[in-house]
Simulated scan of single mutants.
Amino acid sequence: MVRLKNEENNSKNLHKEFTVHTRGGLKINGYHDINFDLGKGEFLSLYGPSGLGKSSVLKALYRTYTTTSGEILFNYDDGTSLNIATALESEILNLRKEHLGYVSQFLQVLPRISAVDIVAQPLIEKGESQTTAQEKAKEMLSFLNIKEELFAISPLTFSGGEQQRVNIAKGIIAPKSVLLLDEPTASLDMTNTNKVIDKLLEIKKQGVTMIGIFHDMDCMKRISDKIYDMKEKRYADNY
């Protein structure tokens, strides 16, 4: 059972199996027996070598992937809960809009939209004026070392690292109560990695619960309250 909630988050016995239809219905295990708990404002890192299903777990929590077995319960402040694993698509869309955010490794945006407008959009959706949202977006882009002359340009023309920083800025400028982060610093140098970690620590102090994937152990140690070892199916005791 997986529980994602504002006060406490727990995961137990989450399992995913993929079917390869081009290989005669071959079954491939994605992950199994995932079990973790998480409190409000805590950061949990998923740890382990490639191929253990870390990104797949995040996608299950966001319901990009369905689960083979196990529940994903999001408990609201009023005491009600939603099982993400079986919820209607309309319920999932509302959950994402109000409570659940996801930052992937890759920027996916429409062409010809400027970097500042992309980053400002989540603030506008929360009720900020366009002017205020754009000013805050510029501050976030500057903090993440995006040059001012690039603000009005589509980030699809940027380098990979610049695109990733725009993607991170968009994902965290108006954080939801639970934020899922899939290798947010994968393509970044140490300077920009530290900038991202600084901002995530700031968000954590605001009570945002986060589950993330980092291949850099130093990043995990700096940001994490708990590290879940996907291979051993338990928390890492010493890190």
Rank of each mutant, 00 (worst) to 15 (best):
A60Q: 12
I172K: 02
S129I: 03
L88A: 14
Q105W: 09
I168Q: 02
N10R: 10
G79E: 10
C219R: 02
M140T: 04
N238Y: 11
T209H: 05
I146V: 11
I28C: 05
A87R: 09
E98H: 10
L61W: 01
D225E: 06
E42Y: 07
E149V: 05
K226L: 15
D78Q: 06
F143Y: 14
L100T: 03
T132L: 13
T86G: 00
K147L: 13
D225R: 02
S159E: 08
A87V: 04
V116L: 12
L93T: 02
H15E: 14
K59R: 15
P49A: 09
R63I: 10
L123N: 03
P155D: 09
L46M: 08
F214I: 00
P184Q: 11
S114V: 05
L150G: 01
T66A: 09
E149N: 15
T193E: 15
L180T: 00
S224M: 09
K147A: 15
N238C: 07
T22P: 02
S50Q: 08
L180E: 06
A115D: 11
E125Y: 13
V2P: 06
E98V: 03
V119Y: 12
F74G: 06
G160S: 09
E98N: 15
S50H: 05
K205A: 14
K199G: 06
V178Q: 01
E139W: 01
Q105A: 06
N192D: 09
D216S: 07
P175C: 10
Q134T: 14
K136W: 02
E202F: 12
L93S: 13
M230T: 01
G53M: 06
V119K: 05
K138Y: 07
P122W: 09
K59T: 01
S69R: 11
G25E: 11
Y31Q: 06
R96Y: 11
Q163F: 03
G41Y: 11
V109E: 03
D218M: 06
V166Y: 02
E232M: 12
G39R: 13
E89L: 09
L82M: 12
A60N: 15
N10C: 07
G171V: 04
A236E: 14
G101H: 05
Y31S: 04
T22D: 14
I146A: 08
K233T: 05
K221G: 11
R222F: 06
G101I: 07
Y62R: 03
T22Y: 08
K59Q: 15
N13H: 12
H15T: 10
K205L: 10
A133Q: 11
N83D: 15
K126P: 00
K27E: 12
M210L: 10
M1H: 10
T66Y: 11
N10Y: 14
N94G: 00
I172R: 02
Y235M: 05
D218K: 13
N9E: 07
F106P: 00
F151M: 08
M210P: 09
A174R: 01
L38Q: 05
G51Y: 12
F143L: 14
I172C: 08
A174L: 06
C219L: 14
Q134K: 15
D198K: 05
D182I: 01
D182Y: 04
G207P: 09
